[in-house]
Design a binder for these strands. Structure first.
Lengths: 335, 335
DNA sequence: CCATAACATGTTACCCATAACATGTCCCTT
DNA sequence: AAGGGACATGTTATGGGTAACATGTTATGG
């Protein structure tokens, strides 16, 4: 691999002059520039970013730490992140934690050793420690999708409360009285927040007796298990609010196995859409978060922080959700 | 940020001793180890990988350059790549080229400047130049999904020919005679290879007169346009073989707009599946490539190359596809 | 014609961790 | 008792680029 020294030697100039040519900085005469450029071309020289990275402690690299890129919601977020980063000449290192704290900590350590400039971070739990660890190392961080209390950190997330409220209200207005929530873990913000939105809608509808109708579970392993549990109630609920798309699809499977038709026998509403190009015939009534924007805006915020620009105080940007009423929800059947 | 020197000073030892403690290399007495470890903890020291990276020209970083992570096929590949990389302590930089050569070249340049150790590369065209550029810079590369002629490079891909052959044969066996291929660009291997598999099946069935029934288009912009063109033939084909999932979904949309039912009026077969967790009620007859394995195996091959292990000669690993016959294909209706 | 600015190029120090080598101690073996 | 291996720690050079500073040249204007 040729270095800037090899180029300088071949062109008969100092390395600094080569550097000026490469970065278009300072004064360089046309004759020198030409000489240097042809030396670069002859040698096939490619500058080594590691030098300046080490010297100035700037790697132009961000990390995106999320639970699982396999979920189309996160895929779309990732695309927003990547696009925003690319516009400003930053690279993205991708990390899947699978909601696994050990894996997450491993990744965080590795990223800190790499001296990445910032992280877009979907924490696997609601502790403050991980974020504080990052901040202590002077690495920028914006938390995605989930809110954390007691931490002074920028957050970009969807309106989980409002989305769940709208979906629950929609089910109530269809005439459902016995509605259950199929939720994720209790220590994850989106789970609890969506449950809270549901409860608010139920309270307002005077259905407080169903306030506790919440089945907690996992976002990942065996997503149909949650719905199976909920179906054991007798009579089973007539409507279900799934807290994310994986849980909704798991529920669909267990409804199918129980011989229940959607929406004739049970209604199902959920969060997050599948892009039309993947699913051309969408069926589920959903509350959709602006996933791409979430990634894009969070990255812009992070990059502005790295430039010491942007708002003084910490931001908690809550993006509005949009409800799409489709075929999976209908009035309850007369018993 | 504390450096190894700060730790050494605080522990009253040489930096080299600290290095030995961190990397568990060489001899260190227990007493010294304890001193150093508490100094590390006190200072919150995190080693800076950039030093050794610069010194030894090894970044423990790979890049995954693909067309669009938004496509679940690529998402799954990406997951395989990431898992394999993580097992061996490598990070993945994600790049979406959108099949855009200019964007691709930009990324390649940026990655070379970063001195990444290797690339998993889905080339946006079938030229040899891009791969040669990478190889000239002494960066490992494994080409994914697409074959390139005239380049000495490892390739891991699915059996596009065989998959298309199987799907076409399936349509023929159902009784279809007028079958069209909805294809991608002519300069992309998977397009041409799948068209070739289709033609082989048609030839064997004595349907050579339909040999040219191929509609070329784009993988990305306006995926329903290809099917629209194909429908203008009169009579229109009774069966369609879409060359990837995006094109298939675009076709479904244009069939719907034309008032054609699938499979009653037209049959549709395609490539690549949507994971069950995303689409619990799969409808399309598809030829499925082992996407996760493709990513996983390619990464393992790349990493073995970086260690100067693995097979002597270049590998072209062709992974078998599996056909899933579902509701989107049926015998042609009597006219 | 000289002071000064603009132009042009060069020199040096620095970032951080570690391989390679150097030095020294202690204990065991013959 | 001497020699040698295992143990323990330290010193130095290295990698590639550029900010900061230094030096020299040419053009401009009063």
């Amino acid at each position: 691999m040729p270095t800037i020294r090899d180029v300088a030697e071949r062109a008969g100039v100092a390395t600094m002059t080569v550097s000026r040519v490469i970065n278009n900085s300072g004064y360089v005469s046309d004759a020198t520039r030409t000489k240097v450029e042809s030396a670069i071309a002859d040698l096939g020289y490619v500058p080594n970013m590691l030098g300046p990275s080490l010297r100035f402690n700037q790697t132009n690299t961000l990390a995106l730490i999320l639970t699982d890129i396999t979920n189309p919601f996160w895929t779309t977020v990732a695309r927003g992140v990547e696009d925003a980063a690319q516009e400003q000449d930053y690279s993205i290192i991708l990390c899947n934690t699978d909601e696994n704290l050990k894996k997450q900590d491993q990744y965080l350590n590795m990223l800190l050793k790499r001296r990445i400039d910032g992280m877009l971070f979907v924490p696997a739990d609601n502790r403050a420690e991980s974020v504080q660890l990052i901040q202590k190392q002077n690495v920028g961080v914006v938390v995605l999708d989930r809110s954390l209390s007691n931490v002074d950190v920028d957050i970009v997330r969807g309106d989980s409360f409002g989305g769940a409220y709208q979906l629950a209200k929609h089910l109530v207005e269809l005439g459902h009285r016995d509605i259950a929530v199929l939720s994720g873990p209790q220590n994850i913000f989106t789970s609890t927040e969506r449950v809270a939105g549901f409860r608010q809608a139920m309270s307002e509808a005077g259905l407080d007796h169903n306030y506790e109708n919440v089945y907690w579970g996992s976002f990942r392993q065996n997503p149909s298990e949650i719905a199976e549990r909920a179906l054991q109630a007798s009579p089973h609920p007539t409507a279900f609010l799934a807290v994310n798309n994986f849980i909704a699809n798991g529920a669909l499977q267990s409804f199918f196995q129980a011989g229940l038709r959607v929406p004739e026998d049970v209604s199902l509403a959920s969060f997050d859409d599948i892009p039309a190009i993947i699913n051309p015939a969408p069926f589920l009534t959903v509350s959709v978060q602006p996933a791409y924007d979430m990634g894009y805006q969070a990255t812009q915020l992070l990059l502005s922080r790295l430039r010491n620009e942007g708002p003084e105080e910490r931001q908690e940007i809550v993006l509005p959700t949009e409800i799409f009423i489709r075929q999976s929800t209908a009035p309850p059947s007369a018993i």
